[in-house]
């Protein structure tokens, strides 16, 4: 009895030592051997701070938005769910008074009053969702894009409560049966995780413009906010633009020319 306990303790001690020493050994190992080197794609589109300008003057009716929403949702395998409660939206349209809450007034001109506005993740400068997330499953990249790690998300939905723009959706059920035509280039999601617009980070990485930009006939422009010669800076300099709920200080990166 005594003997076996002693040998057990010995074994346990050695195991613990081994486990404790492993990270140290790993560190040595990694300094010696060359791991796979990662080269950035030469064609990738980069920016110090990505931003988007939506020229709402170039839209006339709801039909103008359909190809934009469809392009985004198709490329990203966003499911079409019939139950309203389970709905998932990356980009969608709504009225001025809902997009720019508490900014409408009785005598708003007819065009703005009846024109739908595009709504999507604002990729905030100070994203409340990133601050709330308990696992850093949602995070802000250096270039300002707010992303989701679908495999780390525990589905607590704290980010959804935190987002002041209602830009996040939750997979209340398995979305895969509701993806009409699967795009193999982009992952599908599983039930129980949060998702949202990713500024087409996967497309920028291979030198393509975001899907909504491509489908917008020039009404949506993305570019580098920190580059004084960029197209977005040019648009911002020459047009009056508004952002959603600027008083919250989140610093949304989506600008609207009204």
């Amino acid at each position: 009895m005594k003997n076996s306990r002693r040998s057990f303790l010995k074994l346990a001690g050695i195991s613990a030592l081994g486990l404790g020493a492993k990270p140290v050994l790993n560190a040595f190992a990694s300094s010696d051997e060359h791991g796979p080197e990662i080269f950035p794609n030469q064609e990738a589109l980069t920016a110090k701070r990505w931003a988007m300008v939506i020229d709402t003057r170039k839209f006339e009716s709801e039909e103008d938005f359909e190809p934009i929403v469809a392009a985004c949702h198709k490329i990203h395998n966003v499911p079409k769910l019939k139950e309203k409660r389970h709905k998932i939206d990356w980009i969608w349209i709504d009225d001025f008074k809902h997009v720019f809450t508490y900014q409408e007034h009785e005598f708003l001109d007819d065009r703005v009053k009846h024109l739908p506005f595009l709504v999507l993740c604002n990729h905030c400068e100070k994203p409340a969702c990133v601050r709330a997330c308990p696992t850093r499953a949602t995070f802000k990249r250096e270039d300002g894009i707010v992303l989701m790690d679908f495999h780390r998300c525990i589905g607590c939905r704290f980010c959804m409560a935190a987002c002041p723009y209602g830009s996040r959706s939750f997979n209340f059920r398995d979305p895969r049966p509701f993806v009409e035509e699967e795009n193999k280039e982009f992952p599908t999601r599983m039930k129980g995780v949060v998702e949202k617009c990713n500024f087409c980070a996967e497309r920028l990485a291979v030198g393509k413009m975001p899907a909504c930009v491509e489908a917008s006939n020039g009404a949506i422009v993305v570019g580098d906010l920190h580059d004084p010669d960029s197209n977005v800076r040019d648009l911002l300099k020459n047009n009056y633009t508004i952002r959603r709920k600027p008083y919250l200080g989140a610093g949304p990166a989506i600008y609207y020319i009204v």
Partner: peptide
């Protein structure tokens, strides 16, 4: 939780800001 099996991610990736 939507993914209760991942609950321990809260400890695995401790995030004092949350």
């Amino acid at each position: 939780l939507g993914q209760p099996m991942r609950a321990l991610n809260v400890i695995l990736y401790p995030t004092p800001g949350s």
